[in-house]
């Protein structure tokens, strides 16, 4: 399953991700994304990542086991 992650040092709260992925991302009262555990469609996730103006959104790949 595709998981999203936010680089909080980059995110400026533009909110495009929440518009594109409204079922899995909401915004807090200051406009910063809240990621829910709802499954994300991979193509939609890629689109959201590519349009983030701050390059703050990424797809998190599960950690490789050592």
């Amino acid at each position: 399953m595709t998981r999203l992650a936010v680089d909080w040092t980059r995110c400026d709260g533009h909110g495009l991700c929440a518009r594109l992925l409204s079922e899995s991302i909401t915004l807090d009262e200051w406009g910063f994304p809240i990621l829910t555990d709802a499954p994300v469609d991979e193509d939609a996730a890629r689109t959201a990542v590519s349009v983030c103006p701050a390059l703050a959104l990424r797809i998190e790949h599960p950690a490789r086991t050592a």
């Binding site: 040092t9 995110c11 807090d28 200051w30 406009g31 910063f32």
Partner: peptide, 9 residues
């Protein structure tokens, strides 16, 4: 002062 939820929240 880098991360929105910390700065504002």
């Amino acid at each position: 002062r880098q991360c929105g939820p910390c700065v504002f929240g």
